[in-house]
Amino acid sequence: MYHKEKSIQIKNSASALYNNLCVLRIAPRRLTYFTVVHANVVNMVSASWDGLNYSHRQLQSKEPNVATSTSLIMQAAFCVLTSRDLLVVTSQKGIQMYESDGSIMVYWHALETPETPTEQAVFARGISGVWENYICVGVSSGAMLVFDIPSKGSNITLSEVLHEHSESITDMASECSGSQECIANLVTADDVGNLCVWKSGEEFQLLNKIPGFDMSCSSVKLWKGTVVAGYGTGQIRLYEAVTGILHAEVNAHARWIYSLDIAPFSGLLLSAAEDSLVRVWHLTMTPETNSVEIAHLHNECVTDTQICGAKFCDGDGYAFAVTGYDLSEIIRYVQS
């Protein structure tokens, strides 16, 4: 179903972090941006669709005004809002927001870090753009920060801090189908597998809490009102977001899942794990019964690679990209 295409070389190898690959298509310029985190650096590649041009950029996790300070980066992700796209980078020190091409840092939010290290590590992880103008970021304390993003400029404000999770937030995702009918438009996950379902707005509203089972939910997606969650046990679970009804449970991988992605137009689901496998699935909604089904379509093995990032490159799932721990390339697969 898919075949391997020419890989994209990156300047540094990928670190073993959840959801460590991000993709943004810039259709008017026929370009795709890729980001991969390596320790304290974000590697960014802009690749032209004809495969002829690659330009690289590296972003350091620097606090403004403290020239020597660096800290490990936990995640980098593109947030697509109505009027602008931003690249958000989270680290042990705080949250950086850049223009999507990485050229200008428009905002910096420092985390409260104790003077001497505590047993509970401090970091931000879990990034999602929500609706027209919000960017949400998770914190290791379990708090969720909501930033209000103006249509241009750097006047970004922290509008809310929500405390529904008591464990470190692992990942979060907004409704990706673009459907306005779905009430829930954000799901957040944490280190014991608890899921919170939200409705965004001037004040975010908690719609539902889906209890976990003491196992990290490392990657989560929201599609047509269905939460798709990947766990450390290698399982994928499909929940109805607002009711918490479990629709499907899949014994999907032999090791920790590191990344899930959905192609919203086709309902294709991508899952990738430490077991070196990437799998493609197909989700189908049955509106009459209000249920969702999942079917397995395809496997790709990236030999001897613990995969840490996998993303579709387009909304139909025509192509996807993969990277793994210690790997200095992004491998691309395209439908045959």
Partner: peptide, 8 residues
């Protein structure tokens, strides 16, 4: 062991 899908 991977390989099972259960629908509820």
């Amino acid at each position: 062991v991977p390989g099972l899908i259960r629908i509820f």
